[in-house]
């Protein structure tokens, strides 16, 4: 009965699509050692959301998303510029820019709250996410943007692959790393912003990292990793939504993150070849092999 519930279906589909997109995009973010970009960009989106509201004057989702997108993109550009032209490392630049942007967003938010007769209530909800408030309209937007993102990824797959693993080689082949970097950042930022509404600012970073890290344990092939990442993301989305609607007073976003983390834990422990259990088994096996060999050597002497 619950599974055929309209609201449940909407939220579940939305979370699944979000997990799918962030699983695929996260693959590249994790491999490029930019796992925390999700955390940074989603915080940096706040001033864009509020500015979008100030300029348009309504809480129209598309405009707020556009503001978030622009401000997220600006923050990524600033971070890359700082890293390029100074000795400041990526992580410091990220921490600085995201917190400063967030501070600016707070300033704007408190400014908006003084404008009389403005229906600004709930603007910060937008950033902190409220999966249960997802509407069909939002889900449709997600499906459209998600399809465009996936299509772009398929078209530029070869380029992104070379660029991720060997950007100098990519350059020698005539691809511009600068443009590829910009395109990939733009796509990642779009994915992150799409997820903001569902799981919120802090949990979006988990959705970008966890499925991809879990997928990494099972394969050494980029395409398989992206595919598994998408599946793991979607599974966490659906299961998280389902469990949180069966158990009362269980917030959806955090439950999704719990599931994603659980998948990571299982993958790290059990993955064949790389996993911790396999490693322990191999160590034990090697040890017994060593003892046997030593025994053989002793007997020959």
């Amino acid at each position: 009965m619950l599974l055929s519930d309209y609201t449940f279906q909407t939220v579940a589909i939305g979370s699944a699509i979000l997990g799918l997109i962030s699983g695929v995009l996260g693959t590249f973010a994790v491999l490029r050692k930019q796992s925390l970009l999700g955390d940074g960009v989603s915080h940096a989106a706040l001033p864009g959301v509020v500015l979008g509201f100030i300029l348009i004057g309504s809480k129209n989702t598309e405009f707020l998303l556009l503001g978030a997108l622009l401000s997220g993109l600006l923050s990524t550009l600033l971070i890359t510029t700082i890293v390029k032209y100074s000795r400041i490392k990526f992580d410091s630049a990220l921490a600085l820019i995201m917190s400063v942007f967030f501070g600016l967003g707070l300033v704007l938010l408190t400014y908006v709250q003084k404008i009389p007769n403005a229906n600004q209530a709930g603007l910060n909800r937008f950033i902190f996410g409220q999966a249960s408030s997802l509407m069909r309209r939002d889900v449709n937007l997600m499906i459209i943007c998600g399809s465009i993102l996936l299509l772009l990824l398929i078209i530029f797959w070869k380029e992104f692959k070379i660029f991720t693993f060997d950007s100098e080689f990519a350059q020698s082949l005539g691809f511009s790393p600068k443009k590829l970097d910009l395109l990939l950042s733009l796509m990642t930022v779009t994915g992150i912003i799409l997820g903001l509404q569902t799981v919120g600012v802090i949990l979006m970073s988990a959705m970008l990292v966890a499925p991809a890290v879990a997928a990494r344990q099972w394969t050494n092939k980029l395409s398989v990793m992206a595919f598994l990442g998408a599946i793991f993301g979607a599974i966490s989305g659906i299961f998280g939504t389902a469990v949180s609607s069966f158990i009362p007073k269980l917030p959806t976003g955090p439950t999704i993150v719990l599931f994603a983390s659980l998948i990571v834990l299982i993958s790290i422990l059990l993955a064949p070849g790389r996993g911790i259990l396999h490693r322990l088994y191999r160590q034990k096996h090697n040890r017994s092999l060593n003892i046997e060999r030593r025994a053989e050597n002793d007997s020959t002497i």
Partner: peptide, 20 residues
């Protein structure tokens, strides 16, 4: 099995989610 930034990106959202 994973880079340091990825480890940060998994640990803190998990603990934060539990708190929420």
């Amino acid at each position: 099995l994973l880079a340091e930034d990825a480890a940060i990106g998994i640990v803190f959202p998990l603990l934060f989610s539990i708190a929420i």
